[in-house]
Each structure stands twice: as C-alpha cells, then as structure tokens.
Nucleic acid binder design. Structure first.
Length: 413
RNA sequence: CGGGAGAUGGUAGAGCGGUUGAAUACACCGGUCUUGAAAACCGGCGAGGGUCAUACCUCCGGGGGUUCGAAUCCCCCUCUCCCGGCCA
C-alpha cells in the first residue's frame, strides 16, 4: 500500500514515478478523490458521533437525577438517524478507497531505469565464463530421463507437474540443504512454515486482491497455497511491533511453491522451468529503513555466491520500471546460463519493497517511543528446480551423463 | 467430527449496562539513591485516525443486533483450551 498522505501531498511526483509501472493518471485521480471523500465523510461522522456521545452523557445525568428525559430522548433519537446515515457514507467511502488503494502498485525507487519490459533491463555484470562444449549441449528435458519423469507427473496431477526420481530427487534435496546451510552462515534464521496461508497474509504481501487468479485456493477453508515462502516469512510479523534493537531480522526457509501460471499458456511448456509446483529456498529481511539498501546488496551477493560456488555462470540484471513486480520498489534478477537453451534464464529475483508490504501487513518497529513501518525485502536463494536444470545443462557430458558440482558432493556422500 | 469452557493492553488478570482506553501485578523505559549493581522510592508505559498543537473519533478476537448509552446483554463466525471419537 502506498502512503496515501504522501501521495495526496505529492500527487505529481508519485504519478510520474508510477508511470514507470504503467499506472495511469486516471487511476490515481480516482484514488485521490476517494481519499478526499473518505476524509470528508469521516469528519462528518465523527462530529455527529461526538454530539451523540455528549447527549448520552447528559441523558445519564438526568436519569440519575430522576429528571424528565422525554425532550432529550427525542433530540437524541433524531441525531441518531443522521448518525447512522453518516456512518454508512463513511463506510462506503472506506470500502471504495481500499478497493482502489490495494490495487495500486508500489512506487519504484528513483534509481529504477525507465523501460517497457525485460528487454529494457540493465545488465550490471556477468559472473563466471560461459562453458564451451565440443558437442551440441542438450536441453535438460533431452537429458537424463532417469532424473525427471514428466509423464507420470502429469498423470498424478495435470500438465506442469513432474516427478523427480533417483539422483534427480537426491540432487534436489542436496541443493536445498546446501542453500539453507549457506544462508545460515550469512545470519539467516531458518524456518519451517505452513504452506497454506489465509487471505489476510496474502493481502499483506501483495498477492491479494489483485492476483487471486494466480493462486491455488482451498475453497471451503479460505486458504491459499503459497506462491512463495515470502508470504509466510514476511507475515510472521504481521500486525506486530518490533523493537528497533532487534532489526534486521534475517530469515530463510525452504518450501514448495504453487502457482497457477494463468496467462503463461504456451510458455516453457517443456521441461521443469515453469511448473505449478516447484521448490524454492527464500530469504526475507525485515529491516530498519536505514539498513535496507545495504541488506538488499547483501542478499544479491549471497544469491550470486550460491551460483558461483556451484560453478554456474550467471549475470546480474537490474529490472526496469515496466518489468518490476507489483510490490517491488526495486528488483535485481539473477539469470543463470543454460547452455541447452543458449540463453540466460531467471533463477533468482531479489526485491526491496520498502514500506509497501509493511503498510499492508502492519509491520512496524518501535524506536524512541515512536512506531514506524519497517522495510521488507525478499529474494530467492535459490529456485531449486531451475538450479537443477542449470546443473544438468552446464555439467552435462557428451554421453548424456551429468557431473556433480563440488559443493554438493558432501551432501551426496 | 461430537460435548464443555473461554477469547480484555508485552504477560498475568479485574471489570458483567453509564463519563473505563480500561483496576491491579509483573515485565519494560526514565529518574533518585549507590563506587557499580540489586533492593527501595518517584515518574512513564497499547494501537490507529484527526489537529500546527489541543479538542475530538475508533479499537476490549471478527461481524451484526438491543439501548439515549455496551468490554459488559443477544445472535452469527473465527480461534484457543479441556473431554470423547478418528488419525499421521
């Protein structure tokens, strides 16, 4: 949620920044009007309510003194009718405002480059040389049929589900352990989390109400399968006030993630790049605003280091405004080299949402007796399935066998 | 899934229709005292909105109702605890 008071006072500035995210001025005008209306409606209601409270007290006094209250009763009853009307107006104004405000994305940082889509993203650096093959490298689905069983995954569920078996499953598990162990050395505390979260939590991190179609929902429970561990990790502190001395809170968790992938029909239909269910190890930081920049860089470096230690070539990319997600003020993606596809593919996305999620999820810190919103950050470290793909493609041999990266060997005996 | 009890500030725990945002205790923060600490004493100590600041408004799990007036009465929902069934 954007800061409405700031928005109101700095309309042009916010509108200009949000244009990077393709938010129209009309949408913002509507928000501005709704906000003004709410204030007006609240004002009217509160004044009337104050009057009512006063009359009520008076009534109590008269009762105590056994005075005649008929006249006052008539007055109070009359006021009550207007009071109820004003309350209804205020409620509607509030509903309307929320409807609009919850659908406005976060304001991009000043440093975010202008751009329409991923083609306008800016490559910051490349890490590790792209490997040379003296044969034509295969894509991961052409490789190693004994690691992934696509057909049976579809049989068990539907398309975009798959089964890992044997060494595939073991390498997957090794990766999870490697990621978590490594994150721990950077100060991240590990969590095991519910994979079903309620609507309030998903609204807190920004998936709801706008992106309901992307989520798997358990209808009769009002619960959603998490699309990322960012949701439960960040919301661990939902509606809490944290002592500033405790910040930053660094958290990590392995979870499966579930996404409907509505709207990506036809994209990445082969292989396990884009599945309805995939494993991910996530980092989340809850930070004091003064720390968030530094922590953001640390998280990017950490994810990059995970890839480097695996010997996987990758590049670091700053997202342009048009490619930024709903909640993000700034995002850096890590893209890993896939020799079979002959291109870089996203394997991690690290975002700073500043106060955006904190406002929605009411996560505050207390410092010198004052409460303020924290900054929340999140990033993959790393997407496990895609790392598996990267290993398969980068470590493949001509005979189709796959070598194991050095750092994983201790996890595989 | 069936039966019972309950949901109040960081925690414990009063309040059961009237000026109570809420006693009390503990925790916590500041001060006095002390070489320092502890103890003792004094003071502060929920959140949101509103205002230059006050006024003022909202919140006692959530929603609705009764009433001039509700933390207090009624209804629904959610959650927690205890008993029974089922089960990893």
């Amino acid at each position: 949620m954007i800061d409405l008071k700031y928005f109101q006072a700095n309309f042009d500035e916010v509108a200009s920044k949000l244009s990077k995210k393709k938010v129209t001025t009309e949408a913002l005008e509507a928000l501005k009007i709704a906000f003004a209306k709410l204030k007006e409606a609240n004002n009217a209601f509160e004044n009337c309510k104050a009057e009512q409270n006063m009359l009520s007290k008076e009534f109590g006094e008269m009762m105590k003194n056994k005075q005649d209250t008929t006249e006052l009763k008539a007055k109070v009853d009359g006021n009550k009718i207007t009071l109820n009307e004003l309350q209804e107006i205020a409620r509607e104004a509030n509903t309307r405002l929320e409807e609009l405000a919850l659908n406005i994305p976060n304001i991009p940082d000043n440093s975010v480059p202008f751009g329409i889509d991923e083609n306008d993203n800016i490559e910051l650096r490349k890490v590790l040389e792209i490997p040379k093959f003296d044969f034509k490298p295969k894509e991961h689905w052409e490789l190693c049929n004994d690691w992934i069983d696509f057909e049976r995954g579809v049989k068990l569920a539907k398309s975009r589900f798959s089964v890992l078996k044997g060494d595939g499953a073991r390498v997957e598990r090794a990766l999870i352990n490697y990621f978590l162990d490594h994150n721990r050395t950077k100060g991240f505390h590990e969590f095991g989390l519910p994979l079903l979260n309620n609507a309030a939590m998903l609204q807190g991190t920004g998936q709801l109400p706008k992106f309901e179609d992307d989520l798997f929902k358990i209808e009769d429970e009002g619960l959603y399968l998490i699309p990322t561990a960012e949701v439960p990790l960040t919301n661990l502190y939902h509606d809490e006030i944290i002592d500033a001395k405790e910040l930053p809170l660094l958290m990590t968790a392995y979870t499966p993630c579930f996404r409907k992938e509505a709207g990506s029909a036809g994209r990445d239909t082969r292989g396990i790049i884009r599945q309805h269910q995939f494993d991910k190890v996530e980092m989340v930081a809850i930070a004091h605003p003064s720390q968030s920049e530094e922590i953001f860089e640390m998280m990017v470096d950490n994810a990059s280091e995970l890839l480097t230690l695996l010997g996987l070539p990758h590049r670091v990319v700053e997202l342009c405004g048009g490619d930024l997600g709903f909640s993000a003020a700034r995002t850096i993606d890590l893209e890993v080299w896939l020799p079979g596809q002959n291109q870089y593919r996203e394997i991690s996305s690290i975002s700073n949402t500043n106060e955006f999620q904190a406002r929605r999820a009411k996560i505050r810190y207390k410092e010198d007796g004052k409460n303020s919103f924290v900054h929340t950050l999140n990033g993959s470290a790393l997407a496990v399935g895609r790392t598996l793909v990267a290993i398969m493609e980068n470590y493949q041999n001509e005979d189709g066998s796959i070598d194991i990266p050095e750092v994983l060997k201790k996890y595989l005996n």
